[in-house]
Write a protein that binds this DNA or RNA. Structure first.
Length: 841
DNA sequence: CAGTGAGCGAGCTTCCGCTTGACTT
């Protein structure tokens, strides 16, 4: 038995280290924190100087038991948790929960997993830094106090189950405020002018005017001047330039690049990286450090020299810009630079390549460029055209990697820069054409998951291990939704000067399209406004940075942690108490939209128990007045709704008539307009392009007729109530339990016998009727049918019912008739529906 | 899926940071 027990945080790390140390060392992992505050609201005894009560986490009981046993058998326990605040606290919690004496423990730290680093650490043990531990305790306790006092306030004043916290509430605030910024953006159009000049041998020179015009008139005046002008190269300047590589990845930059280049969500990136880490392919993936170990620097140098030549290598040491960085680990890098392919899933490989390239490139030479700028004069005006080109003289790191850009802003502006065609100073240029086109200013971009992480990191909020969970939490709480949005068309005015004539065109561009962006919900707006109003300190963007400074003072032994907490908690708790007393109804008063022109009553939009709604009138019991309500459509925000849109929502619901003796009602529900007929609902969902009332009415008739036809019974069988011949949308068919069976063409449907059904049902495949739901009790079905259904379930995935149906109904509206026949592909949908209906009975 | 919508209210929810596993179809 070995005499030394080394405890690290991660099992993968333990495995690596065990190899570096001799037989006398057993290396085990704590799997992160082993103790935490107790669950309820009594974990912190505020009155007793914030005394915390800790408990061994449920999922760590086995870990602690095993470690305790090993520790007993060892002479020395080496606490080798991470070299940061949390790591120090883990060591302390280990000491406490393993009942270890100070004399038996050694605290060691290393920031890279290399043999030298670890042996060096063993040579230089120290004791647990209680000040640092106390800084962690203060952090932990403050977060608990903030989260567990603000959240219940939200339950009481807004909605149960909500949450608030130092990190998540600021993340939500960022999304909310960005949305308002986008909404408030006043797009201004300027005329951007491009000139194209004809050179010898059919070559073209593209140049942009150094000025943009505010109005069409100014652009017109400019083009008129150009009509009479001569163009010449006034200046031609060549200058060298260079580009340098960026630092190797941290968690945050990895998430950003994987999002931009590979379209991964931050959670997806972390899962893949975790797998690479556990397979020993990359270094630790939760890090805020851009530092590479000496071992890695050397390995990169060798790899670069061998692959590209020594001139491509350039040793670089990067420094973190982030003040909040704790740098307990290296940057994210391959463990072996000579490995370019890792096995496993395709996305693992793609992420690995990204990590490999970025780390290699960070140790490569600058790219050398030559920039050429030509200034083209216009004889009749003082403006000039600028043509610029860029040529790569030496690739350097660009051979491997180019970082992508977050700012879509410039996307339209930056054309791919290549070499300029050969021109000389003083040369007269022949004009091909000049185009002056409107360009609208863009609002700030909505956040993606990754760009929100970047922003949080800049503000010092959250840690590498919590970025992905935080992003998930705010979506789980329904504060934020990740969505695609279609853009809308916008008409642009364009003036073109060509062959001496000025012509005006209209160009159509698609604008406002969004892909996987974060949108705040109405709930987020209400919660955020409530928190910002009553807790301006905690929701301030700089709150974390400020308390971090105080935690640092604790870590340096300059402040007592209880003193710091007291300073924060007293005013905070006072605000909580004050806020307890405010009226619920004053929080979500909603937005007054205006007055109903018919009744003269006020119309407001607010958040109700079941979602956003518009309301006409206030309740007045004395007068017996009841307000009327209507739901907002999905995707519609209270923030943005106008009076006209609100009135629109009240136009429906209405009675549209009677069909087959049942009244038919069209209404707008939470998820859009629908038709209700004979106790059944027909969805008319469509977000951006709502149906008109006429369309809705005709759809209602078509849908009701179709349903009625589909229900028509042709024949029943006394042998089995589950067997029926029905008249479906596309003709008669046999419904046999969950199976829908085709009737042979030459058969008269009414003469089908039960024996034939049994024969025909052999080998017939059915659509799975309830995808993703719990299976029905199987005993109800005869064994034969069950087998057939099961076989089919495994074989075929469910079709997208809603989408197909929508497409079909929309088509029907245009034609204003019931489709008699449909392509074979759609039959499946009808079948499925019949099955679903059966189930609901 | 879909309607409803203040009020009464049992007993529940919730924070941030460390780290990986695993109920079964």
């Amino acid at each position: 038995m070995s005499k030394n027990l080394v405890i690290v945080e991660s099992p993968a790390k333990a495995k690596t280290i065990e190899g570096y140390l001799g037989k006398d060392f057993t290396v085990k992992s704590s799997f992160g924190h082993v103790r935490d505050l107790t669950k309820g609201d009594k974990a912190i005894d505020v009155a007793n100087n914030f005394t915390p009560t800790y408990i061994i986490s449920e999922d760590k009981k086995d870990v602690v038991r095993d470690l305790k046993k090993l520790a007993k058998e060892s002479d020395i326990v080496w606490l080798a948790t991470d070299d940061d605040r949390e790591g120090e606290a883990i060591s302390w919690h280990l000491k406490e929960s393993l009942d270890l004496n100070d004399s038996k423990i050694r605290r060691i730290v290393f920031r890279e997993i290399t043999k030298n680093a670890i042996l060096g650490a063993i040579e230089n043990p120290r004791t647990i830094d209680q000040d640092l531990v106390n800084a962690q305790q203060a952090r932990r306790i403050l977060d608990r106090l903030v989260g567990f006092e603000m959240s219940p306030l939200l339950w009481k004043k807004i909605k149960t189950g909500l949450s608030a916290g130092r990190v998540q509430s600021v993340a939500v605030r960022l999304v909310v405020e960005r949305e308002r910024e986008v909404e408030a953006h006043d797009a201004k159009a300027l005329y951007k002018v491009n000139g194209i000049f004809l050179l010898d041998k059919g070559k073209l020179l593209n140049a942009e005017l150094n000025k943009r015009f505010n109005t069409e008139q100014e652009a017109q005046t400019f083009l008129e001047a150009c009509q009479k002008s001569e163009f010449s190269v006034k200046e031609l300047e060549k200058k060298p330039g260079k580009k340098s590589p960026t630092a190797p990845f941290t968690t945050s930059t990895l998430q950003q690049e994987a999002s931009r280049k590979l379209s991964f969500s931050v959670a997806q990136t972390m899962t893949l990286a975790q797998r690479l880490y556990e397979a020993g392919k990359i270094s630790y993936m939760r890090t805020d450090s851009v530092n590479l170990s000496q071992f890695a620097l050397d390995a990169a140098q060798t790899a670069i020299t061998n692959a590209y030549g020594a001139e491509f290598h350039h040793k670089r040491i990067f420094k973190t810009k982030s003040e909040s960085a704790q740098e307990a680990h290296e940057a994210i890098r391959p463990t072996d630079f000579t490995v370019q392919t890792v096995g496993g899933e395709r996305n693992e490989q793609r992420l690995y390549e990204l990590i490999w390239k970025r780390a290699i490139a960070s140790q490569m030479a600058d790219a050398q460029l030559e920039k050429t700028v030509a200034t083209i004069g216009i004889s009749q005006t003082s403006e000039v055209f600028i043509a610029s080109g860029e040529v790569i003289k030496f690739e350097g790191f660009l051979k491997v990697y180019l970082e992508s850009n977050d700012d879509e802003e410039d996307e339209a502006e930056t054309e791919a820069k290549g070499m300029l065609p050969p021109i000389d100073k003083g040369q007269i240029l022949n004009l091909d054409q000049i185009r002056a086109i409107e360009r609208y200013s863009r609002p700030a971009a909505r956040y993606t998951e990754a760009s929100l992480v970047k922003k949080l990191e800049e503000l010092g909020i959250g840690r590498p291990s919590t970025y992905a969970p935080t992003i998930s939490t705010i979506q789980k709480r329904m504060y934020v939704e990740k969505e695609n949005r279609d853009g809308r068309e916008r008409k642009l005015n364009e003036l073109v000067l060509k062959a001496g004539k000025i012509e005006q065109h209209t160009v159509i561009e698609n604008t406002g399209q969004e892909k996987m962006k974060l949108f705040p919900t109405d709930l987020a707006m209400v919660v955020n406004d409530f928190l910002v109003e009553h807790f301006p300190t905690v929701t301030d963007y700089s709150f974390t940075a400020q308390v971090e400074k105080e935690f640092d003072l604790i870590a340096e032994g300059k402040t007592k942690w209880q003193t710091m907490l007291k300073g924060f908690y007293e005013p905070f708790h006072k605000r909580v108490e004050e806020t307890q007393n405010i009226e619920r109804s004053t929080i979500n008063t909603g937005k007054t939209l205006g007055v109903d022109p018919v009744s003269g009553e006020t119309i407001i939009a607010r958040l109700g128990r079941y979602g956003a709604l518009v309301q006409i009138g206030e309740a007045d019991e004395e007068k017996g007045i009841k307000p009327r309500f209507a739901s907002l459509r999905k995707g519609q925000l209270i923030e943005n709704i106008t009076l006209e849109e609100a009135l629109d929502l009240f136009k429906l619901p209405r009675e549209t008539g009677i069909y087959e003796e049942e009244p038919m009602v069209v209404a707008i529900g939470r998820f859009g307009p629908y038709v209700r007929h004979a106790g059944k609902f027909y969805s008319l969902k469509k977000e951006d392009d709502p149906y008109t009332i006429d369309e809705v009415t005709s759809i209602a008739i078509i849908e009701a007729k179709r349903k009625a036809d589909a229900e028509k019974l042709i024949k029943e069988f006394p042998e089995d109530p589950e067997a029926k011949v029905l008249n479906g949308r596309w003709g008669p068919y046999i419904a046999f339990g969950k199976l829908n069976i085709k009737i042979p063409k030459d058969r008269e449907p009414s003469s089908v016998t039960y024996e034939e059904i049994l024969v025909w049902s052999e080998g017939v495949t059915a659509k799975p009727s309830r995808w993703g739901k719990k299976a029905a009790p199987a005993a109800k079905e005869p064994a034969k049918k069950k087998a057939a259904a099961k076989k089919s379930t495994a074989k075929k995935p469910a079709t997208k019912k809603a989408a197909t149906k929508k497409a079909a109904t929309k088509k029907a509206v245009v034609k204003k008739e019931v489709p008699e026949k449909a392509p074979a592909k759609k039959k499946a949908v009808a079948k499925k529906k019949a099955v679903a209906k059966k189930k609901s009975k």
